[in-house]
Each structure stands twice: as C-alpha cells, then as structure tokens.
Amino acid sequence: MEQNDRIHLELPAKPEYVSIARLTVSGIANRLGFSYDDIEDLKIAVAEACTNVVEHAYSEDGFISLACYIYEDRIQIVVADQGKSFDIAEVESRLGPVDAKKPVGDLKEGGLGLFLISTLMDKVEINEDNGVMLVMTKYLYESGVKESVDGISSLQSE
C-alpha cells in the first residue's frame, strides 16, 4: 500500500514537549477517521515512546524525532532519538519486533513502557543501531471489521 503523506516534527527532548507530540498524533489520527479509543491508544503509546527518549536518550539536551507516515489503511509513527532524519523504507529493513509475550520482569529498564506500547498498537518494531528508533503501526479498521491473516474478515472484539 502506497504512502500518502509524511509529517515530521523535531522536538526538544524535554517533558514539557511530550504533549505536543500527543496532540499532533491525535489531530492526525482524528483527521484519518480513527475511533476515539484508537486515538486514546495512539496518544498513550506516543507519550510513552517520547518519555522514554526524554528519560533515557540524552545526558544533555537532545531532540525527539517524531514522524507520522499516512497510508490508506494505517498510520505508522516513528519516534527516534539522535534527531536524525531517516528513510522509512531503509529503516524497516533493520527492524525487529518488540516481544510483548516476554514476562514483564525480563524487560530492560524502560521496558514496561515498551510492553504498554506493544499492547496498544497493532505492530511495534525497534531498531537500536544508532540511538533508538521505535516504529509503531495502528491500522484503521472501518466499522470494527478487521481482515485476518487468512483473508477472512472477523469482527474486532471490544
């Protein structure tokens, strides 16, 4: 599915700017037609990801890089430290999944936030080659019907 638009923000990695990331993603998701519950999930996931950058990425001033990639059927949100721009296609080749099935005690510091993010989003991947880059995907389910892996639609549980 072809990417339509990309919105990119660079914010100071300070707690007072996390709300700007939340509001930005909320506004984009609302415009795309996501449900209230999905928008709330997106806001929490983005806040957790940005807070991880604020708390763990820098000993001095740095930046949160937030990019939203808009597709017909989903939004892909990338939160990264180092403030570098990136090519999503190139980055996707190096991503690995976040495993929410691991016991919470096995997660490294900040891992509880990753656990929460992985339960709120449809797909979460992480790359730690050069700083940390978290790629979160949320699908837009029209009228609560989601296509399953085998192509048969199933009603999404509430």
Rank of each mutant, 00 (worst) to 15 (best):
M1D: 13
E2M: 11
E2T: 12
Q3V: 11
D5E: 15
I7G: 03
H8C: 13
H8Q: 14
E10N: 12
P12R: 06
A13M: 02
K14Q: 14
E16K: 12
Y17K: 08
Y17D: 05
Y17G: 03
Y17I: 02
V18A: 07
S19D: 10
I20H: 09
V25R: 01
V25N: 02
N30Y: 11
L32H: 10
L32Q: 15
F34A: 07
S35C: 07
Y36W: 12
I39W: 06
I39N: 07
K43T: 09
I44H: 07
V46L: 05
A47N: 11
A47H: 10
A49M: 04
A49S: 08
A49Q: 01
C50Q: 03
C50D: 04
T51W: 08
V53G: 03
E55M: 08
H56N: 06
H56M: 06
H56A: 03
Y58Q: 01
Y58A: 00
S59Y: 09
G62P: 01
F63W: 10
L66P: 01
A67F: 00
A67W: 01
Y69S: 11
I70F: 01
Y71I: 10
Y71L: 06
E72D: 15
D73F: 06
D73H: 13
R74G: 02
R74L: 09
Q76Y: 05
Q76S: 15
I77W: 00
V79E: 00
A80W: 00
A80L: 02
D81A: 02
S85Y: 12
F86I: 07
F86D: 00
D87V: 07
A89F: 04
A89S: 13
A89D: 14
A89G: 08
A89I: 09
P97C: 02
D99R: 08
A100G: 11
V104H: 09
L107S: 07
K108V: 10
E109M: 13
G110C: 05
L112N: 08
G113D: 06
F115A: 10
L116G: 05
I117L: 05
I117T: 03
T119P: 06
D122G: 04
K123L: 10
V124H: 01
E125G: 10
I126T: 02
N127C: 10
N130M: 06
M133G: 02
M133R: 12
L134C: 03
L134S: 00
M136H: 03
T137K: 05
T137M: 05
K138Y: 05
Y139P: 02
Y139C: 10
Y141L: 11
Y141G: 06
E142L: 12
E142G: 09
S143D: 15
S143G: 09
G144A: 07
K146A: 14
E147T: 15
D150K: 13
S154Y: 14
L155G: 13
Q156W: 14
Q156Y: 15
S157A: 13
S157L: 14
S157Y: 11
